[in-house]
Structure formats: structure tokens, C-alpha cells
Design a binder for these strands. Structure first.
Lengths: 196, 196, 196, 196
DNA sequence: AATGAATGAGGGTTCATTCAT
DNA sequence: GATGAATGAACCCTCATTCAT
């Protein structure tokens, strides 16, 4: 990559980051192309030269975001941490990427920007899922997971925890009950029958 | 209430329902007042005569919706069903009200239409919460709930299940694993240690 | 006039007064029929039943107003006051009718509501003008008016003073210089050459 | 200023002139942004790009107008004309700028567009007033102005003449009596006591 | 390649006026 | 006769996108 292309990539990245920050704070619809252009210190037309349309920009922003999130997760998954620690980190650890995530952000993408959806699913299927399945199998061997429960159900369950706990509007209620929630995560509301 | 007022109420209701349906399908922002007017077979101005602005209409739509959802829930809570059945229905039963709920709908309201939020919280605090707490106490007495877990954590947990499972984009994955999820809900991913 | 008609006239009058008050405060254009209706405690349609349209209502409001102003002026003109006192009162005395006159009011009428203009001119020509001409002749005989100056010029001059001094935006500057202006009115900026 | 900026300024000016012409003819409120756009042969949005809103455009139009009027007046004031000629021109000479001035125009601004008002007053206080006061002092020395009359009163008087005579609805009556009015201006209605 | 300038389409809102009871 | 309800037309303004340099 020569100097020209490097500068071009740099500019693309700064547009993506400006857009991502604004999308996360206000939602995709409420952010205008003009605002992105200003935040990225480029002209609107440059955005169109690079990304064709706001829709396609949004897709690219999602990919950019998903790649970062995945890199974080993958690092945890391939680490040497024990099973339950991996689970906890993946499920409960709030990523710095989602610190200021708007409620609408992810759902905006999932609803209106269908191209992006494909990319997420592909990445999920080809990369995330195999690693997760490995993790679950490992968990079952170590007695951490009920062998009668399907991988699908566990994935669903983890994803639910993860996503829900990232929602801005619930975060405030969560902190004092994190301990309890962790316990519930592993043992349900019934709790361990013979715990002592 | 005379004929005039009855027809007025009828028209208001038809506007609310048209707006609710459209908001649920497309999100609040994407629906124009003109579209609501057309669906409700009234003129745009009639909507303004009744609701002053799109914002205030949206608030009223939320209240209208919340009232209906709450009526359903309350019916379950004050019924004679056994504890675990109440929990299951509240948590897992998909309300017909949410059949076509857009992903954005609730969050749109929670984000931008702050007046509505106050109403929801008031209803929750004064009506829903007391009934739920009663239910949990009943559940603890019957051994369905770990006595060490706080009400707050259980509420959070139930709410999470409920909301997440209503999301359109996850509904399709859920059906085959409902059984598993119910089990997880009660016993966590570890499952019962000594089940037999 | 029977009871019915009397009530009808009463209602018309209350509409005219509501409209006049609002027109004077905000100008004709900025006042909506709905606001007039509310201030007069009638329905909008009643206004239309009585006055056909906002335009025609405005005409009637002008006539209503002009009649009152003229009654005041006529009282002064046919009084026994000495010449210069009549002139002063007509020209400098601020009518209570114009206390809260909006800047736009008169000009709104003169510009857009041409029917009203005809009425004003007719009243002016047939009633006001003859009385004024009499007054000027009387003034000339008493040496108060330069005999070389035409009636038209004096009328113009008086009208100018009168109207300009009623303007809200100049009223504040006027009070401290009323004495001077009166002197100027009679003797111009040059003043009396040999006054003693 | 390069070609870009020159064309931009040119376009701004053509919008200002289109708006000024329409405002003067019909008043500010009655003119829509669409009409201005059409008269200036630009799109509505271009107007918004340059002026943000109709209100701010109106302010700028007023400034544009006031600057021109002031330039004319200043030229007279700093000229070598004798005192009485200066006074006559300032007071009686109809500026070509006001040829088609609507009755409402100035008052529209003075009423609703308060930002503009500040500009006018500032220009008046810092530039116009000092020059006028000089003129009056000069006039007093030459015996043209009664030394007992305050500057404020003379200013008021001149302004009154000037503004009133610019009104469209009175202009038609004025022409045949200009001579008389000039006389009145200097000597009042009483006229010179010892004229011969 | 990059940009300032320009725009068509559409959104929420207001208002004088008419309809229907 | 009087009213609450309803509306078509118009207005100000925003935005994603294209034009022209």
C-alpha cells in the first residue's frame, strides 16, 4: 500500500469512526450525512465517493464495529482462562466498545440495513459459533453445563444476557445485583438444591 | 357520554390503533403523520386537533399500548394458576399484542418520548411491582425460588427474558429451544445437580 | 329590535371587540379566527355565520373602530373650545382607543382590506372634511393659520402628526419633547422671528 | 476573493434583492420562501444554506436595505450643499430605494425581527445621529433653527415627515402640496408673522 | 480526488373554511 | 341558530443526494 492508498484508508477510517460514534449516540436515522462529514472533517461528497450512499456507509460502519467486537471476544475465547471465567467475561464484562452505545444502534442496523446482517451472520457462523461450541463441550466435560441442554439454547441464553445488560436503560439497575445475576445465570432462580 | 363524544372517542381510538400498528412495524420516526392519517382514514389535521403534535400522539400511543399489556399481565397475576405456571406465562407466553412489534418500538419511546417513560414507571411501581413481589414471596415459600436471591435480580431476569424473547429478530431461533430455555430459566446452565 | 335580535347584536359586538383587541395587539394576519372565537367565547362557525369570512370580518372591525374614533373627534370639533385648543386636542391628544394600537393595525387594513378603505374615505369626505375645513377657515380668520397655505396641506400635516405620534415605537421618545413639538407644529423649526 | 466566493456573494445579493423587493411590496409575512426562491431563480434550500431561516434572512434583508439608505443619506450630509438644501433633500426627497416600499415593510421589521432593530439603532446612534447634530448646530448658527428647540424634537419632526411621506397611501396626495409642506416645515401653520 | 454549491422530495404543523349534527 | 369536528392548501424547514469546478 503506497502513500496515496494509505491516506485514503486513513480517511475512510476517520469517516467510519465519526459515523460510528454518532450512530451509537443518536441512532442511525437521527444522524445526517452532513453531521458525519463535519465530525470527520471531510465534505459530504467525499463520503459519497467512498461509500456510495448513507445505507452502504451504515453497512460498512456495522462491519467495522462488529470486527472490533469480535476481536475482543476471540481474544477471550482462545485464551487460557478456565471455562467459567471465559463464560463470565463474555457474558458479563461490558466491552469498552459499547460504553456509549445508543439503545437504537444495533437494532437500527438489524432492521434497516440488511446487507450488514449477512456479514454478521457469516462471521458468526464461520468463526464465532465453532469456538463457542468448543467452549460448551469443554464446559460439559467439566460439569459446568447440563448435558441435556442444547448448544443453541445456551447461545441464546448468553446472547440475551449480553445484549440486555448492555442496554443503557437497564445498566443502572444492574450493578447492585450483578452477583445475584451471575448466580442465576449458572443455577437459575431455583438455585442449587443441595448447596451446603 | 352522548353520541358526539362516543364518536370522538371512537375516532381517537382508531387513530391510536393505526399509529400503534405503524409504529410497531416501522418505528416511530419512520412513520409520517400522513401515513397514520391515511391508515386511520382521517385527515392529518384531525390528528393534530386531537393530539396536538406527533410527539404527544406518540406519548398517548405508548400509554394506550402499555395499558393493554398491563391488563393482560394483571389478569395472569391475579389468577388462580399455580406459581410456576404464572411465571411461565408471564415470561414465555408471547402476547398477541407484541406479535408484530418492531424492534425499535419500545426503545423509540424510551429514548425520545420521555413523557411516556414517566407513565410507564409509575404504573410499574404502583401496580406491577407489588403484585410481582407478592408472587416471588409465594414462590419462595413453595421452594421455587432460591431464598438468597433478591427480588430485584429476579425481576431483572424475568424482564430480560420477556423483552428479549419478544424481539422479532430472535423469535425465529427460539421456538425449537423453548423447552431448554424454560429449564435454564429455573435451573441455570448447570442444571439440577442431582436430578434423579 | 326584539330579544332575539338584541342578543344577536350583542354577540356580533362581542366578536367585533374581541377581534379589534386582538388585531390591535398583534396585527390582522397574526390573529387566527380560532383565537378570535375563543376570546369572544363563540364557535368559529358563528363568526362565519355573522361575517362570512375573515376578510369581511376585518372590514367590519375597521368600520367599528373608525366609528368610535370619529365619534371622539366629532365631539371635539363641534365643541365650544377655542381654535388652537381644538387643534391641539385633535392632533396631540392620544385617544384611549389607540392606547394599545399595534403598529400594524391601521396599515394592515389600508393595505389588504380595500372594502374598509372605501368606508373610511366616505366618512372622511362627507363628515370629517367639512368640519375640518370650517375649523381651518375659523383659524385663518383668527390669524392662527397662514392664509397662503392650502387646506389640503394642513390636513396632511395634522394627519401626519396624529398618526405618527400614535405609533407605539415612537411614543416613548415623544413625551419629553411634546412642548417643543407643539411649538414646531405652529411655528416650524425656524420659530417666531420676532416673538416679543 | 476568488471566483467561488464572488459567485457566492453574487447569489447572496440576488437573494437579498429578490427578498427585499417582495418584502417591500407585500410585507414580510405575506411573502413565502418559495416565492423568494423563484424570484431569485434559486432553490428554496439554497436560501436556507445561506441564511438559515426566514427570520435570519429578514434580518439580513433589513441590514442590506438600511445600509443602502444610509449611504444615500450620508452622501447628502457630508456634501457641500447649504443647510436648508440639505434639510430639504433629506426630508423631502424621495429615495429611489423607497419607491415601492410597502406600508408594512419597515414596521414588520421593527415589530418582529428584533435582531435587525439592534443593528439599525446602532448605526443610527454611532453614525447618523452625530452627523445630524452637527447639521443642526450649523443650522442654528445660520438662524435656520429656533435655538430654543431641542435636537430631539427636530429629529423627531424630520423623521416624521420623512417616514410619513414615504407611505404609499399618502404619496398621491402629497405632490400638489409639496410647496406648502416645505413652507410649513420651516414656519409651521402660523407662517411668518412679518413676511413682507 | 475533493469540495462548495445546489436541489427534489418529503416532514411536521397551521389556518381559513366547510360539514354534519 | 349554534357548534364540535373535519379538512385542503400552504408554509417553513431538513435531508440524502447530485452538480460543477
Amino acid at each position: 500500500m503506497n502513500g496515496f492508498e494509505r491516506r485514503k484508508e486513513q480517511k475512510k477510517k476517520s469517516i467510519l469512526e465519526a459515523a460510528l460514534a454518532l450512530f451509537m449516540e443518536f441512532g442511525v436515522q437521527k444522524v445526517s450525512v452532513a453531521e458525519i462529514a463535519e465530525k470527520a472533517s471531510v465534505s459530504q461528497v467525499t463520503i459519497y465517493n467512498y461509500f456510495e450512499s448513507k445505507d452502504k456507509l451504515s453497512d460498512k460502519v456495522l462491519k467495522y464495529y462488529v470486527d472490533q467486537v469480535w476481536a475482543e471476544q476471540e481474544a477471550i475465547l482462545i485464551s487460557d482462562l478456565p471455562f467459567d471465567e471465559k463464560i463470565k467475561q463474555i457474558t458479563f464484562e461490558k466491552s469498552h466498545l459499547t460504553d456509549q452505545m445508543s439503545d437504537n444502534f444495533f437494532q437500527d442496523f438489524m432492521k434497516d440495513y440488511t446487507t450488514g446482517k449477512g456479514y454478521v451472520e457469516e462471521l458468526y457462523t464461520t468463526k464465532a459459533l465453532p469456538l463457542m461450541v468448543n467452549l460448551f463441550n469443554e464446559g460439559r466435560e467439566q460439569g459446568f453445563i447440563d448435558p441435556d441442554i442444547s448448544n443453541e439454547a445456551i447461545l441464546f441464553y448468553m446472547q440475551m444476557f449480553k445484549e440486555y445488560m448492555q442496554r443503557e436503560d437497564v445498566a443502572q439497575y444492574m450493578l447492585p445485583i450483578t452477583e445475584d445475576l451471575t448466580k442465576i445465570f449458572f443455577y437459575g432462580i431455583v438455585g442449587r438444591e443441595k448447596n451446603d
